[in-house]
């Protein structure tokens, strides 16, 4: 009997964005790299996202946000992750996030922030290198 491990990734859309094109492109790229992607759909609360990550026992959470609410929603999400003892989960973010906010986001535990135009290959490599299995 051989174990069969896969990287499981939650792609989550916190807040009130009206579209999820970017999130779907990321999901598709990671899927094509052989990972299992769980998608939350639009307009999720931090509680929904973290609880979903817990039930799905993912190795990675990718947060996609366009609305500008990242400074409120991301700290809340990171707090909940710590509260539930899920510190081993890799968290990255993408979407419309100003350069000057990135340092603060990294300080609260978000490993990397990817802006528009990031090649999907970069993302795949990042997840493969940093996800704990």
């Amino acid at each position: 009997m051989t174990a069969e491990r896969k990287i499981r990734v939650l792609i989550a859309k916190p807040g009130l964005d009206s579209h999820d094109r970017g999130a779907k492109i990321v999901a598709r790229a990671l899927r094509d790299a052989g990972m299992e992607i769980i998608y939350t759909g639009l307009r999720q609360t931090p509680e929904q996202i973290v609880e979903t990550a817990l039930q799905e026992d993912v190795n990675v959470i990718g947060l996609s946000i366009l609305s500008g609410a990242h400074k409120v929603l991301f700290p809340k999400i990171m707090e909940l992750i710590k509260e539930k003892g899920m510190d081993d989960v890799l968290v990255f973010a993408g979407g419309i996030i100003p350069q000057e906010d990135i340092r603060d986001l990294k300080r609260i535990g978000i490993k990397e922030v990817f802006g528009p135009g990031t090649p999907t290959g970069t993302l795949v490599e990042f997840v493969q290198e940093n996800a704990k299995r």
């Binding site: 896969k6 999901a27 598709r28 990671l30 899927r31 094509d32 790299a33 052989g34 990972m35 299992e36 992607i37 769980i38 998608y39 939350t40 759909g41 999720q44 609360t45 509680e47 929904q48 609880e51 979903t52 039930q55 799905e56």
Partner: peptide, 26 residues
């Protein structure tokens, strides 16, 4: 072909994701 998967069923069920009496696994 790639071994990857896109699990999208729970998108429709997310309203119940924080309900303690419900456990959803894809």
């Amino acid at each position: 072909f790639t071994g990857g998967a896109f699990l999208g069923d729970r998108v429709r069920m997310q309203e119940h994701s924080t309900d303690e009496g419900v456990f959803i696994r894809s």
